[in-house]
């Protein structure tokens, strides 16, 4: 069974206003579990909007989204948040770490409202940082971390709620080649653990990687081509 199904998704911003803009137009797609798919395309092609809708961060203007077989388009925000929290882990292009608190606190931030005890949360956070080779920086404030370290903190944060799907938007946009390769290696480990990974990227280092199972070419809000790994 497909993990995510998109059926005729259209997303229009500023509808009815002079600056109305159609970001996605009638996109239909099925995403299977345990794979790595990359949405590739130029700026404004709709990659980020599509990831937002897949990750239950935004609602489509038309069409239906099913996550693990459950129709989520019509759910109220509160339920969408719950699904987002337990199903998806996000790695943002700008990382968006909270300054002034430690790496560990940033990692466990998404799990604060879960009600899990802080001691247990910290333990899990340290374990994740350790897996990413960053346990020794757990108590360091994030503004003191290097670019690569900060990104590993963002990865650990995306994994704290043990999501089935990891979504990353232009994850290598601000990284040099070595850090980009490190990031892809970390993703390969996640894929091997059975996570489903979705990227939006126009970096060849990402979409030409041998670990990518599927590349979806986007343009003008539509999927115009698709390549699957042989």
């Amino acid at each position: 069974m497909s993990l995510i199904v998109l059926n005729g998704i259209t997303k229009i911003f500023n509808r009815g206003r002079p600056d109305e803009f159609t970001a996605l137009s009638d996109v239909s797609l099925e995403i299977e579990p345990r794979g790595l798919a990359v949405f590739r395309g130029p700026s404004g092609s709709g990659k980020t909007t599509l990831l937002s809708i897949v990750g239950c961060m935004a609602k489509p203007s038309a069409g239906r989204v099913l996550v693990k077989g459950r129709e989520v388009t019509s759910l109220p925000d509160r339920f969408l948040t719950d699904i987002r929290r337990h199903t998806f882990g996000f790695i943002f292009q700008q990382l968006h770490l909270v300054r002034g608190i430690s790496a560990l606190e940033n990692v466990i931030l998404p799990a604060y409202p879960s009600g899990e005890g802080l001691a247990s949360l910290r333990e899990r956070g340290v374990r994740l940082l350790d897996l990413l080779g960053l346990a020794h920086r757990a108590d360091t404030n994030v503004e003191w971390l290097s670019g690569g370290e900060a990104q590993r903190v963002a990865i650990a944060r995306a994994l704290i709620n043990e999501p089935a799907i990891v979504i990353a938007d232009e994850p290598t946009a601000h990284l040099d080649t070595k850090l980009s390769l490190d990031f892809m290696a970390a993703m390969e480990r996640l894929k091997a653990e059975g996570k489903t990974i979705l990227f939006a990227s126009h970096d060849p280092l990402v979409y030409e990687s041998t670990m990518v199972d599927r590349v979806l070419e986007m343009r003008d809000g539509r999927i115009v081509a698709e390549r699957r790994a042989s």
Binding site: T81, F90, H96, L109, P110, Y112, P113, R157
Partner: peptide
């Protein structure tokens, strides 16, 4: 914004 994005209601 970050809190909302990482899953806070």
């Amino acid at each position: 914004g970050i809190l909302k994005a990482v899953g806070w209601e």
